[in-house]
Design a protein around this nucleic acid. Structure first.
Lengths: 323, 323
DNA sequence: TCGCGTTCGGCAACCGGTTGCAAAAAGTAT
DNA sequence: ATACTTTTTGCAACCGGTTGCCGAACGCGA
């Protein structure tokens, strides 16, 4: 039923190998022949069968993209960019969601392994050990996670956190809280370390928390109890939840407490107060990660670390500290 | 390098066909033989090569899931549910994003066609004609779109819209606006028709609009100009944007204007005011759609329409009309 | 015109499973 | 013991491309 390479061969009076080469090794076939073959193929509506190609070449032309939670607005821009970039290179992307569960993450990688040429691991919660082991089975690129010797795309949250803390101290805040994220999160650790290294202020760490509004909501009580007047939240969702939680307890942002998020998601630009946040170059990360992955797929041991800049965007959720 | 069916055959002293059948047609092989083969396979770490299987059976065991915009929080729950359900059936899912562009949508379907066994089309913006044509090439299930004779999962927004209008009229609103969605959207049309059919109030339609916060933001002026005191927005994002836009123009919700959204996204439950909204059973839709799709994949012309209920959730964005 | 180097195209094996067919083995009835 | 089923297994072709190898055709200089 479907039109195959042999149909094209027959219809254009050449051997199947010539048809094949017309597509995958153009320089090996006479330009005239090639155009004729392509025309016939077009005419018949021929589309190469990827399964067949995968069988011989060992390349599926598929990539896996594993994220903790599709519903977290941090990921969609990254996913979109990765998809677009992959399609540019004639690759397709399986997006899989681990529900923040390391076990599910590992299973997914295993399942995907035989099905894709490489895997993009975004914000993985696995241990370094596990990641290193899995690496034997399939090429990886990590996003937002650092593991020795593995190709990686990072966003400089450390710097972002420093900017945030500076911003808060300039506003007069002397006691800060960091509402941290999930325990396996590199981003969270990075933020904590950066904040801890700022000597001029008191910093208290509250967490771990789920990286969602609910996490922020639940952290509100602890934040109030901590006596902090400035807060750096693990991400914008947490920040939004936190602001809501604070408000339920009578503390208004930014009047009583200043809150800074991370990611610059759309919701943060529209709610009230509009979030001061650390913007992450997620789309760029997705694009670059795909390219790194493809590179490491065909030139074996390619490795490298790309660090992308982050920016502090000041909006309405931060303000002067009251003495 | 990878262990194949022949390795297993050799190691267990049977023919490859017996190994193959041990997996895919257990009843055709002696139970003892089978357990031995499976043990050996397990031992060697054998994993069937999906590309090879796809080549002979013509089944890729992949599904396509096409959505207008992954970043729209309406979709992730549906995607997650679909993924989970598919995995249960040993299928994988390609999620693709059309950026609300019908052309991209068509291209994507074409590209995916040779790569998947069936496609889930969520809220497609294509014309019925195009959909019917594409259907020749590959099994479909539509979500949130009705096309004659195609398997479909719908959520009853019509009823939701009626409930919303009733709610608003009970609150005393006599002039309503419907902020509609993209022009290709079935949901939008459905809402409009349901609202138009409610005879006891004036309804004005404003649109089409992009189904995002920005769409809502931009519609604020028109809403004010329309003189409506109650608004039904295409979805929660639009509602949130609209509330923001109204506020910028000095109209507060729900004091001056009541707004109802659709979808019940998390952001709506947390912002201020919390959104009154029509909840959509997205997860159920994803699950059911996958099952319908798989069914129509192996039993050819399966067709049918599933209609899921929606609910009105009253929160804080609606209130009494002022006379 | 002959010889030689290129370019082009055909041949056929191969990737790793699946499956119709038939032989072999086991079971049953006579 | 024989003939006839039924179950179990092996054989081999096939799915639709890719690719190493080899011969044909062609161009070119002598």
């Amino acid at each position: 039923m479907a039109v195959t390479i042999r149909d094209v061969a027959r219809a254009s009076g050449v051997h199947v190998s010539t048809v094949s080469r017309s597509f995958s090794a153009p320089h090996l076939v006479n330009p005239e022949t090639r155009t004729r073959v392509l025309a016939v193929a077009e005419d018949l509506g021929y589309r190469p069968n990827r399964a067949a190609r995968a069988l011989t070449t060992g390349r599926t032309h598929n990539l896996g993209l594993i994220v903790a939670d599709i519903a977290n607005p941090f990921f969609p821009p990254l996913i979109k960019a990765a998809q677009a970039q992959a399609r540019l290179r004639d690759y397709h992307v399986f997006v899989a969601d681990t529900d923040e569960d390391p076990k599910a993450e590992e299973d997914l990688i295993q399942t995907l392994t035989k099905q894709v040429d490489g895997v993009l691991l975004c914000s993985p919660r696995l241990t370094n050990r596990t990641i290193e082991r899995l690496r034997e089975e399939i090429p990886f690129v990590l996003v937002n996670r650092r593991v020795r010797g593995m190709p990686t795309v990072l966003m400089d949250v450390g710097r972002g956190a420093r900017l945030a803390v500076e911003h808060l101290t300039e506003l007069g805040h002397r006691r800060l809280a960091v509402v941290t994220g999930p325990s396996g999160s590199w981003t969270s650790k990075e933020m904590q370390e950066a904040a801890a290294a700022m000597s001029e202020v008191d910093v208290v760490f509250l967490g771990p928390n789920p990286p969602t509004e609910l996490g922020g909501l639940a952290a509100a009580a602890d934040v109030l109890a901590s006596g902090a007047t400035g807060v750096l939240a693990y991400n914008d969702l947490v920040a939004i939840g936190l602001i809501e939680g604070l408000s339920e307890r009578g503390a208004e942002v930014p009047r009583d407490i200043s809150v800074i998020g991370v990611d610059d998601i759309v919701a943060g630009r529209l709610g009230r107060p509009k979030l001061t946040t650390i913007a992450m170059p997620t789309a760029a990360a997705g694009r670059i990660a795909v390219d790194m992955l493809l590179q490491s797929v065909d030139s074996e041991g390619a490795t490298g670390v790309t660090m992308l800049e982050t920016t502090l965007i000041v909006r309405e959720s931060t303000g002067e500290a009251h003495t």
